[in-house]
């Protein structure tokens, strides 16, 4: 049985619920030093980071550990209900944010969502369409061979698919390289305060790469299932 509590959400007003001082979204109140409810939902901001994509993961881990030591509910067992609530909210946002930002793909997907992009749909890269057609044929052949119980045919279809998989994995790696290059472009565009049009173009390109990535990833997954 889950415990379904009706949450008393005090939405963020930038005012400390414990002493009433202005907090401007800080983790702790500057006056009474008590932990604050979560305001806003930007993971970059939460970690005190700019919206850049090249993140040093070991630095991120370091802040994650440091903030965990400040927010974790373990340390608020004897505190007031309001502080306990704030500790749970802030820890869960910390954990959710760390999980998102430490992973390259999750990080760029998150940035795109923050910038108003919808979740990237699976989209086949144009140069892949012919290959996909071929692959589907091979998958069908494998299925047929399995059904017929012909071990030779199964082995043949399997090795053909395995070879195709290798090709797909290479493509994935290629996409990742291009994505990473875009990360650098994005960060430098931010540093230069580049015009909005340039940044939008970069976001479009990254969104497109993610769509391709997700498509190929799905393809690899379904081939693996068949193998």
């Amino acid at each position: 049985m889950a415990d379904f509590a009706t949450n008393t959400v005090t939405s963020s007003t930038g005012v400390c619920p414990h002493c009433g001082s202005q907090t401007a979204g800080a983790h702790f109140c500057a006056e009474c030093r008590k932990i604050q409810l979560v305001s806003g939902s930007d993971y970059f901001q939460f970690f005190g980071l700019p919206r850049k994509l090249l993140i040093d993961v070991s630095d991120l881990e370091k802040s994650f550990y440091e903030l965990s030591r400040q927010f974790h509910p373990d340390y608020f067992m004897r505190a007031s209900n309001a502080e306990q609530q704030a500790s749970i909210e802030r820890s869960s946002m910390l954990n959710d944010g760390y999980r998102t930002l430490r992973d390259r793909v999750a990080r760029v997907s998150y940035l795109l969502a923050l910038e108003g992009y919808k979740e990237a749909e699976k989209k086949a890269p144009p140069d892949l369409l012919e290959e996909v057609f071929e692959l589907n044929m091979q998958i069908e052949e494998l299925k047929a061979a399995k059904k017929a119980g012909d071990e030779n045919d199964v082995a043949e279809a399997q090795s053909a698919l395995e070879e195709a998989m290798m090709g797909l994995r290479e493509k994935l790696a290629g996409i990742d390289d291009r994505l990473l290059a875009k990360f650098g472009d994005w960060d430098s565009a931010l540093d230069r305060s580049a015009p909005t049009s340039e940044k939008s173009a970069l976001l479009d390109q990254m969104s497109e790469l993610l769509s391709h990535r997700s498509y190929i990833g799905h393809l690899v997954h379904s081939i693996q299932e068949e193998l």
Binding site: A2, A5, T6, V9, S11, P73, D74
Partner: peptide, 22 residues
């Protein structure tokens, strides 16, 4: 909002975003 607490137990709360009502 689905929240798994430090015990691994789920709590759920809901809010109407238009009225901000619980």
């Amino acid at each position: 909002k689905f929240l798994i607490d430090a015990n691994g137990i789920l709590t759920v709360s809901a809010r109407d975003l238009r009225t901000q009502q619980e």
